[in-house]
Simulated scan of single mutants.
Amino acid sequence: MGANSRLTIAAHALAWIGLNERMGGEVATSEQIANSVNTNPVVIRRLLGELREAGLVESRRGAGAGWRLTRTPESISLAEVYQAVEEGPLFALHPATPNQKCPVGHGIRSVLTPVYDGAEQALRAQLARTSVADVLRESIAVH
């Protein structure tokens, strides 16, 4: 099972849009963002569509088409980005009810549910402490 990179790509796209705006660009195209991410523009457009539904970006159509942030990079947390692009919980229980006659099968859900809930809360708290501006600033600092 591979790791999910949707949050990473979305954070990258938002940071790039923030940099573009800082440098005087009115909008960023999905092709420009895809070039930075090194992926297909269709991947970027799909994620930006989800970010638009969450109110984090807006798009302009027609001449001068592209994407821009709806708020400052400082006011967008990675927790909001995560909420916009990730479906469902971080971890899931069995899709079918385990064997209730088995001692492990009988208790596994009640044991793992609070562990998974705690991990999800910790993840969201960590993401809430980081803004798109932090990602942009620290990414540029690495260069």
Rank of each mutant, 00 (worst) to 15 (best):
G49Y: 05
L14D: 05
G64S: 13
Y116D: 05
H12S: 11
N38M: 15
Q126S: 05
E58T: 02
L48N: 08
Y82L: 06
R137H: 10
L90I: 04
D134G: 01
A28R: 06
E138P: 11
P95V: 07
P98I: 14
V43E: 10
I140A: 03
V104A: 01
V85E: 06
E120L: 14
G105M: 02
L78N: 01
S59G: 09
E74D: 15
A84W: 04
A133P: 08
L14G: 03
V85Q: 00
G55C: 01
P98C: 13
K101V: 09
I76H: 09
I140R: 13
W67T: 04
Y82P: 10
G105T: 05
N99H: 06
V115G: 09
S30G: 15
P41R: 13
P89S: 07
R71K: 12
F91C: 10
R68K: 11
E50K: 00
P41A: 07
R46K: 10
P89C: 11
A92L: 13
G49P: 02
P95F: 11
V43H: 04
A28E: 01
C102T: 14
T8F: 15
P114H: 04
R68E: 00
Q100A: 10
G88K: 01
H12P: 13
E58I: 01
V37A: 13
A92P: 12
L19A: 06
S36N: 14
N40S: 06
H94S: 15
N35Q: 06
V27G: 00
E31M: 12
G62L: 03
T113N: 06
V42M: 10
R124W: 00
R52M: 10
C102G: 07
A65W: 08
A96M: 15
L136K: 03
L93I: 11
R71S: 07
A15C: 11
E120N: 10
M23D: 03
A28K: 07
S77G: 00
S110H: 11
A54E: 00
R60P: 10
N20Q: 15
R129P: 05
Q126T: 00
D117F: 10
G25K: 09
I17M: 07
P41M: 08
A13L: 02
V135W: 01
R61A: 14
A79C: 06
T97H: 14
T130E: 12
L56R: 02
V142K: 14
A84C: 05
L56C: 01
G2N: 12
E26L: 12
R46G: 08
T72R: 04
E53Q: 01
T29W: 04
A92R: 08
Q121N: 12
S59W: 02
A28C: 11
N38R: 15
R60D: 05
S30C: 09
A96N: 15
L51G: 00
A128K: 08
A63S: 09
N20L: 09
G18Y: 02
P95Y: 03
S77L: 03
A133T: 03
A119C: 13
E74Q: 02
I33N: 01
V85T: 04
